[in-house]
Write a protein that binds this DNA or RNA. Structure first.
Lengths: 110, 110
DNA sequence: AATATTTATCGTAATATTGCAATATACAAA
DNA sequence: TTTGTATATTGCAATATTACGATAAATATT
């Protein structure tokens, strides 16, 4: 079906999956790493930096923006993007809770 | 195209994306949380616990196993699954490095 | 051996994702 | 106002993902 049955999962599980999904493409990982490194970035720079066409980058930026992980600011004809610090930190809390589940009680039976 | 251009990204970026992708579905998040909680789990229990059909769960388990995040052990007619501790820890290192990028120098210009 | 139980695989339908050419939009400069 | 520059949107083709019925495979039980 290609359609996840989100209604049978908790809000937390769906939230984790949504964040993870957006990190599930190397272009978006690359964009975010670049924004961290350069601090702020004009969209066009990303197109040059990453080897994908302009509409493709624009689409990936839209997804990152939609989840609130980045912000965009129009500067003349270009748009400056940067990490949304507050939302990034909130996302980290959710993901860390999932990734750092306690392994100490785990017997690794198999 | 539906096909990610992995060749233009670094191994690290592709690795992050692959891990994230597998967490990008709430069923797999749910399965992993259950394995952490119960420590080890018979496949059939997961089918009962999560509201998805047996072939669907089996498929999700296969993906998790393929990435090395879980192990499976045949016990008679059933199969016991559990977290692969070592690989989980290694995955955490990769993901943490990405998630915990330094925000302190970030001006949040936009 | 026949039957039951459990999990994996196959096949397939429905939907989602990725990438880009073409085009639209928005603003700046001449 | 026209031209140029930068980004967004649209439309579409190719591929991937999700879900599950049907069935196979593997082992236990009788």
């Amino acid at each position: 079906m290609g359609l996840a049955k989100t209604e049978i999962f908790t809000d937390q599980q769906n939230k984790i999956a949504l964040f993870a999904k957006v990190f599930g493409h190397p272009a978006r990982v690359s964009i975010l790493q670049h924004l961290f490194k350069i601090n702020a970035c004009i969209c066009g720079d990303l197109v040059n930096e990453i080897g994908l066409a302009q509409p493709t980058i624009s689409q990936h930026l839209k997804e990152l923006k939609h989840l609130g992980l980045i912000k965009g600011n129009v500067e003349g004809t270009s748009v400056c993007y940067c990490i949304h610090k507050e939302n990034w930190t909130a996302m980290k809390t959710v993901m860390s809770e999932f990734l750092n589940q306690d392994l100490s009680n785990n017997q690794e039976c198999c």
